[in-house]
Deep mutational scan, measured.
Amino acid sequence: MQIFVKTLTGKTITSEVEPSDTIENVKAKIQDKEGIPPDQQRLIFAGKQLEDGRTLSDYNIQKESTLHLVLR
């Protein structure tokens, strides 16, 4: 499924993921596309910071959901 990751600069990254993918996994995909190390990434969805060990389905993230990427 496709999800969108919006950066603070307003850029939107499209990523191909599975509901069973972990947040860590998603951060790795963002690193592949943007070159941002996962340890600098914080992903936010519905006002919550997403934890690395959890999966997209844990957070009820569905296709075409938009996550927000904040850098630390």
Rank of each mutant, 00 (worst) to 15 (best):
Q40L: 11
K27S: 02
R72I: 14
L43Q: 00
E34C: 15
S65M: 10
L50Y: 01
T22M: 06
Y59E: 02
Y59M: 03
S57Q: 13
Q41D: 02
D52A: 06
L43K: 01
A28I: 13
K33E: 09
T7C: 13
A28P: 01
E24R: 14
Q49D: 14
A46M: 14
T66K: 04
T7V: 09
D52S: 07
R72F: 12
I13Q: 03
D52T: 05
H68R: 09
A28N: 10
T66Q: 06
A46T: 05
R72T: 12
K27F: 07
R54C: 10
Q2Y: 13
K27E: 01
Y59W: 01
E64H: 14
K63D: 14
V26Y: 01
I30F: 03
A28L: 14
I13E: 02
L67S: 00
I3H: 01
G47D: 05
K6T: 10
L56F: 04
T7Q: 06
R72G: 09
M1Q: 03
P19H: 06
Q31S: 13
E51K: 09
F4G: 02
K63Q: 12
M1I: 11
Q49S: 10
D39N: 12
T7F: 15
Q40R: 12
G35M: 05
V70M: 11
P37G: 05
P38S: 15
K6W: 06
T22N: 04
D58C: 04
P37H: 10
L71W: 09
N60D: 09
R42H: 12
T14I: 14
T22K: 08
T55R: 10
T55K: 10
D58T: 04
G10E: 03
G47R: 05
I3D: 01
Q40T: 09
G47F: 05
Q41C: 08
K48M: 13
G53E: 09
L8P: 15
E34H: 11
N60R: 07
T14V: 14
E51C: 10
M1R: 03
E34M: 15
I3E: 02
L50N: 00
R72W: 13
Q40V: 11
I30N: 01
D21R: 01
L67Y: 00
E16C: 14
L8D: 11
P37L: 07
K27L: 11
G35C: 05
Q31L: 11
I3Y: 00
G53H: 14
S57E: 11
E18D: 12
I3F: 02
I3S: 01
T14E: 08
T9C: 14
D32P: 03
F4E: 03
T14M: 12
E24K: 12
P38Q: 14
F4A: 04
I36K: 03
I61S: 01
T12E: 05
P19W: 07
I3M: 02
G10A: 04
P37Y: 05
I23G: 01
K33G: 06
L50F: 02
L56I: 10
L71M: 10
V70D: 05
K29M: 14
E16P: 05
E64L: 11
T66R: 05
L8K: 10
Q2H: 11
T22H: 04
S20G: 11
V26I: 11
H68S: 07
T55F: 06
A46D: 12
P19Y: 07
K27W: 04
L50G: 00
V70Q: 09
V17L: 05
R54K: 13
I44L: 12
Q62C: 05
L43V: 03
F45M: 04
L69F: 03
S20D: 11
L69K: 00
I61F: 02
Q62K: 12
L69N: 01
K6S: 06
N25V: 13
Y59Q: 03
Q2W: 13
K48I: 14
K27Y: 06
I36Y: 13
L43H: 00
D52H: 06
P37A: 09
L67D: 00
